[in-house]
Design a protein around this nucleic acid. Structure first.
Lengths: 250, 250
DNA sequence: ATAAGGCGTTGACCTAAATCAAGCGCCGGC
DNA sequence: GCCGGCGCTTGATTTAGGTCAACGCCTTAT
């Protein structure tokens, strides 16, 4: 009866570091404060643990495909997953990159509206959709949390529409780098040398560009001294202000 | 504490025609089955009525602007409203056209994330955000309904990203016409001569095109005999199948 | 060590859509 | 009745980004 599609983690309160032993696997979850589980008490986490299993997937491995029966939902605990939609002739739009704390799979429809695939090695919690919905029924604060996450997701989607419909290639790349930086910081990671684990093709499919244009645009920014390419797919934002100005279409 | 941004009405069950007098203004609401109020009992509607006022706005009149304190939320009962975001230099992205039954204004943030403005003369119910949130607290089924509407909205947003990022002008226009047709049918209106109340500029800003390209593309489809322009801003979809094929990128 | 394939970069060229520029109705105001 | 402005269309031209093609680098397999 209930919902969702794709929920992005948000900061709820101060990250509660708890590497301590716990009454359940979930009690030790390092990204709990980012997830749908954030508002739950320790004792309630046992319930969550009882209906979830963990899994890991390797880069390029699919999680599910558009059109499949949507009977599982997922919570990402580590790594990066991309979600995308395809046109008949293979044109692809990546509609989001998901990270630790993000939630995906819930849908009003009985079938997934998009495909999901690992970008990096990723760790996930898997739930049976019905069981999770039953759990939500018993925990209104968890449902509120979903609503709140959905709200953020909608705002992000509108921002992405502005990007896709109206920004230039350079502005798109600048916005993309800032988004990755901001999201890394939300997860308590470094925001400046920003980690860019996805391929040029994935970036292009996310920004409505080709790989060539993505590559050329990185080169322009690099030549201008605005960014610097580091090893391990990391990019240093040398001059943040010009990047912000670009992203805002200034 | 709670949610939202922009919620699009969905079909919940068979439209329940009830032009009868009612215990409250809401009891007579012709579009109730499309709105967030759909799951409420007649007696519960009185509560909704007690915290809402109605208003009407004329074409071009703003409802609110991006960045304003988001203290009101709205339910559209008639007409068409557009929501949009702007870049610093005035480039505009219309992120949605809203119709009877659609809900807008709720946000996680204290400020609106987008602007809203009437396309046609429109009738709305206005709520104080806090009061509505308190009402949601007492009516979990209404909150579930919001979650469900948000889920649909997210799926629509992803579809729109695919359109903006990967479709050609012709495919965008075909998708747009089908969207308007489908949404009119959801509201129990004619789906084929489809009513197109918004300007070429608004359409362009929704599809990531210029008015000139929108106009030319309509002309192409007209010349090909695929559509026919009628009076009163209505468009007849003469050949649906070619339009569907275009929209799906076939 | 070498071959082979995948990803990223770069260059040359092309094209879909943007931009610039008229005009053409249509409506509202005087 | 006439004028002025806006929305829409159409044409000419430009351009951002796409397409096609090559090559270099790195990784993995033989």
């Amino acid at each position: 009866m209930s919902p969702f599609d794709l929920i992005r983690a948000q900061q709820l309160m101060e990250p509660q570091r708890r590497a301590t032993r716990a009454s359940s696997p979930c009690g030790a979850c390092a990204v709990r404060h980012l997830t749908v589980c954030a508002p739950l008490e320790d004792r309630e986490l046992a319930e969550v643990a009882s209906i979830s299993t963990t899994l890991e997937i390797d880069p390029g491995e699919p999680l599910f495909d558009e059109g499949e029966p949507a009977d599982k939902v997922f919570n990402i605990t580590a790594g990066c997953v991309k979600v995308y939609k395809l046109l008949a002739d293979g044109r692809r739009q990546v509609t989001g990159f998901l990270f630790a704390g993000d939630f995906l799979g819930l849908s009003n429809d009985a079938h997934y509206a998009y495909s999901a695939e690992a970008v990096t090695h990723a760790c996930l919690c898997r739930f049976n959709r019905r069981k999770l919905e039953a759990l939500l029924e018993r925990h209104p604060k968890m449902e509120k949390r979903l609503l709140s996450m959905a709200s953020n997701e909608l705002a992000a989607a509108q921002e992405q529409m502005l990007l896709l419909g109206r920004k230039t290639a350079k502005e798109k790349i600048a916005s993309f780098l800032l988004m990755l930086s901001r999201r890394a910081q939300q997860r308590g990671q470094a925001g400046n040398p920003v980690s860019v684990p996805m391929s040029r093709t994935d970036i292009g499919d996310y920004l409505g560009l080709t790989t060539e244009t993505v590559s050329r645009t990185f080169t322009h920014l690099k030549t201008a001294g605005t960014i610097r390419m580091l090893s391990g797919g990391r990019i240093e934002l040398v001059e943040i202000e010009p990047i912000r100005d670009l992203a805002e279409g200034g």
